[in-house]
């Protein structure tokens, strides 16, 4: 497994350098978003309206964090299941989003859009929310505060651990990994 360190925002060159199976540590700003926020964002894109946060070149982390205890930047914050965001993904990538972090398989349309628009999908370890929260140094809500855990947060992360699942070359680590280990 190759280990890579990347900083955000992601350049086209960085995105092209990432391959399915790479272990990646992300440092910089990432944004959160899940079902309800994606619906609002893509409704704005459809209407030709500006988004409340400039997400071009950025990474969205699919997460609904637990509340912070006193002394914490954020509560437990592992990935949520990504397929629920598939219907919104082509529009987000056409707009200029460059990375997504979540867990679980993406549909054909989302994967095709990654190849077409030059974007990458990372998986974080689902269920490791307490461990992942240690890499999130700062958190603040930047849009849709009314959505509570589903609001858009800006996270400042240091060495946030994840693995590249879908790269711009059309590779899919879930398909390849399972093929390698399945027994008839």
């Amino acid at each position: 497994m190759t280990e890579k360190r990347v900083t955000t925002p992601l350049t086209a060159e960085t995105v092209r350098s990432l391959k399915a199976g790479d272990r990646v540590f992300i440092t910089g700003i990432i944004y959160t978003g899940r079902d309800a926020a994606h619906k609002r964002l893509t409704d704005l894109l459809k209407a030709g309206q500006p988004l409340p946060v400039d997400l071009r070149g950025q990474i969205i982390y699919y997460v609904g964090p637990a509340p912070a205890k006193p002394g914490q930047a954020i509560g437990s914050a592992g990935p949520t299941t990504s397929y629920r965001m598939d219907p919104y993904t082509p529009a987000m990538l056409e707009y200029g989003l460059k990375g997504m972090i979540g867990k679980g398989m993406r549909n054909r349309e989302a994967r095709d859009a990654m190849v077409k628009c030059g974007a990458v999908y990372f998986a974080a370890v689902g269920g490791a929310g307490a461990l992942i929260a240690k890499t999130i140094k700062k958190a603040r809500v930047v849009a849709y505060e009314d959505l509570g855990a589903e609001a858009i947060y800006e996270f400042t992360v240091e060495d946030f651990p994840c693995i590249v699942v879908n790269d711009v070359y059309g590779n899919d680590l879930y398909e390849e990994g399972v093929k390698q280990y399945q027994r008839a």
Partner: peptide, 15 residues
Amino acid sequence: NAKIAADERVPMCQD
């Protein structure tokens, strides 16, 4: 992750 959750009294998963 399970050890951090138990030691620090935080949820093991955000969900």
